[in-house]
């Protein structure tokens, strides 16, 4: 019981002090899990993170679940995940409710009009970065273009595009012999 409580607070701390999640949480994980508690080695943390990247869902959540599970079984996985999301629930709920009550304030409106422009740039930047690692051959170009056209023209859920592109990836790797760019 005491260890579960510790697990919860470790991950709550990590959730509270990492901005952006994903890769940003690795240094915190190393400090808390490897150095302070010695619950895993650095290599193990990297392995968990690698699995977290290629399983569905938020990477930070996946990594937390993995470490919690390895430590304390299913209940450990659940507790670590709840710890990780706990600060978000508190902070975001407070901010969202504050924003709702100041929504008609002209200063807030001007601020967010400026912020939205920055968000457009930030998202564009993420896309450019992803393009560099995602598109490495002709299959990539075809899938990118196809997903763009389908997403633009048809009113279908992203789920189908995700499933379709994963299957295409598997089929083209099975057939093999794709020429790289």
């Amino acid at each position: 019981m005491k260890e579960l409580w510790t697990l919860f607070w470790i991950f709550a701390r990590i959730g509270a002090f990492t901005f952006g999640g994903g890769y940003a949480m690795l240094p915190m994980l190393q400090k808390e899990i490897v150095e302070k508690y010695g619950w895993a080695t650095e290599e193990e943390i990297m392995d968990y993170y690698a699995v977290g990247q290629c399983t569905p869902g938020v990477i930070a959540v996946n990594t937390s679940t993995f470490i919690g599970y390895k430590r304390k079984g299913i209940i450990g996985g659940i507790v670590a995940t709840l710890g990780m999301t706990f600060p978000s629930l508190i902070v975001i709920t407070l901010i969202a409710s504050a924003l709702q009550s100041f929504n008609d304030n002209p200063i807030i409106q001007h601020a967010f009009a400026g912020v939205r422009v920055v968000v457009a740039v930030l998202v564009a930047n993420v896309v450019v970065k992803m393009l560099k690692t995602a598109i490495i051959d002709w299959v990539g170009i075809v899938l990118f273009t196809a997903a763009l056209i389908v997403g633009l023209l048809f009113d279908i859920s992203p789920i189908y595009i995700i499933i379709g592109s994963a299957l295409t990836g598997i089929i083209s790797k099975k057939i093999g012999g794709v020429k790289s760019l």
């Binding site: 290629c54 009009a113 939205r116 422009v117 968000v119 457009a120 998202v123 564009a124 993420v126 896309v127 992803m130 393009l131 690692t133 995602a134 598109i135 299959v139 990539g140 170009i141 899938l143 990118f144 273009t145 196809a146 997903a147 763009l148 997403g151 633009l152 992203p158 595009i161 995700i162 379709g164 592109s165 994963a166 299957l167 295409t168 990836g169 598997i170 083209s172 790797k173 099975k174």
Partner: peptide, 27 residues
Amino acid sequence: KAAFYGLRPAVTALIALAGFEVFKVSI
């Protein structure tokens, strides 16, 4: 690995489309 090889370009396209929605309302 093969599924992610196919997924990555498509996910990039999906995020690009969502980013365009943000661009539309901000600019």
